[in-house]
Write a protein that binds this DNA or RNA. Sequence first.
DNA 1: TCAAAAGTGTTATTGTTACACCCATGC
DNA 2: GCATGGGTGTAACAATAACACTTTTGA
Lengths: 250, 250
Amino acid sequence: MNINPDIPATTAVPGEKELIEEAVALVASYPKVPITVDCVIFGFDENELKVLLIRSDLPLFHGKWSLLGDFAGDQEELDDAAYRVMRSRTGMDDVYLEQVRTFSNPKRHPGGRVLTVAYCSLLNIEHHQLKTHENELHWHSFNGLKDMAFDHQEVLDYCYKWLQKRMQEHPLGLNLLPDKFSLRELQNLYEVVLNVKLDRRNFRKKFFSMDLLIDTGEYEDDVPHRPGRLYKFNFQKYEKNQRSWIGIDF
Amino acid sequence: MNINPDIPATTAVPGEKELIEEAVALVASYPKVPITVDCVIFGFDENELKVLLIRSDLPLFHGKWSLLGDFAGDQEELDDAAYRVMRSRTGMDDVYLEQVRTFSNPKRHPGGRVLTVAYCSLLNIEHHQLKTHENELHWHSFNGLKDMAFDHQEVLDYCYKWLQKRMQEHPLGLNLLPDKFSLRELQNLYEVVLNVKLDRRNFRKKFFSMDLLIDTGEYEDDVPHRPGRLYKFNFQKYEKNQRSWIGIDF
DNA sequence: TCAAAAGTGTTATTGTTACACCCATGC
DNA sequence: GCATGGGTGTAACAATAACACTTTTGA
């Protein structure tokens, strides 16, 4: 790289400055598209999977439910944009967030072509108070949702499938629970999200055998029956022992 | 919807036409970004994983290898754009292609901000002849690749991890082999891509027990040793018997 | 006849499923 | 004392991992 960009290395070869100008001109000549991020924010409450929604602020979709989203800033990394959306609308921070997929149907926005990159987030409803209730921002039951704004139904359905798959391979779901949880809560979570019925003893055996639950020594409170032990998840140990080879399974 | 858009349903409420105009104006007011698709096209030849590359045509990256990519058309679905890239540069068609991830680092293109959506493709090198060799388009060994143009090294590494994971859950890898293949070829493929050593007898048992291999009755040819039986993969049967619940495994 | 890979079974171990009874607590 | 869910063990079964010899072909 030249120290002084005004003096090219040789007179025959263009300097880095010229090359960059050329690249800038090239990029400027290409079609551009508005980009949004849309956040599918899952929660778990009262034994139901919930998703954080607002009323669409686009009059064309008056009354319809919409995911939380916003246009991406000019020089903004999309992960940052997704975090910004979460923070600005809910005050939530430091949560699990992951890019899931980009939706590019040219008809997906009635105002013209808009790409959206879907992000999926999982958080514990109790630990994060909504900072606003503008546009009826609220936790909506995942089941029975239909006829959302834009292509948000499709985005949501895709993210739900993603969640189901991902939860079986990674301890994602624990982000939906409080820090301390009973095994019953954990099992309910898996049963509800994966839509299966699991054997209680086998479920316990499975989780205990992974040796990733830390017994807090504490017990549930305010339950109208024998209280269960409360556990924490050992995320540290999990991170350390990542398996690489699993097996062929299809 | 109004039959005649010039006469709103009521005088107080704006008609659909006005709402759409409003949406169009809104979209027009937002920042726009150029979008590209980049195709990571994997092949398998001489017992090595290969990837289809060209020399970057951006002078700034003179001599560096680049994925096949192009800007997305104004009203083009990104899947279509990825297909177009494959077809226009290689003549290949009707191949496995899937969106993997969007890369949005604002610094990833020296000419300014350009988003790219990475697609991953798997095909059999023998069955698809390159239609051109412009820009040194060729099958490059995956191993030992480094210092590519743009962030293409990162994109490629991400797609490789994606491939490894995906190949264990779906019979993706078969797209890399000829229609008829021996079990040795199949095992080599898995060993190379997943970078593991597998027991031959257990590997056979595994695949036969899935009952998805069709014995063609034919045998290898031109091998300097006892020829192996050739099989086809029963994609139809596989598609029909998709499992929904697998299990908790992490 | 040699080299090279094809083809083939058994055993030990591990993980998974199915299943039923007593226990602790709140009401 | 009763309703509710907590907590526990075992046996059958399925899947996986480890391991070695004979067969077939081309050269």
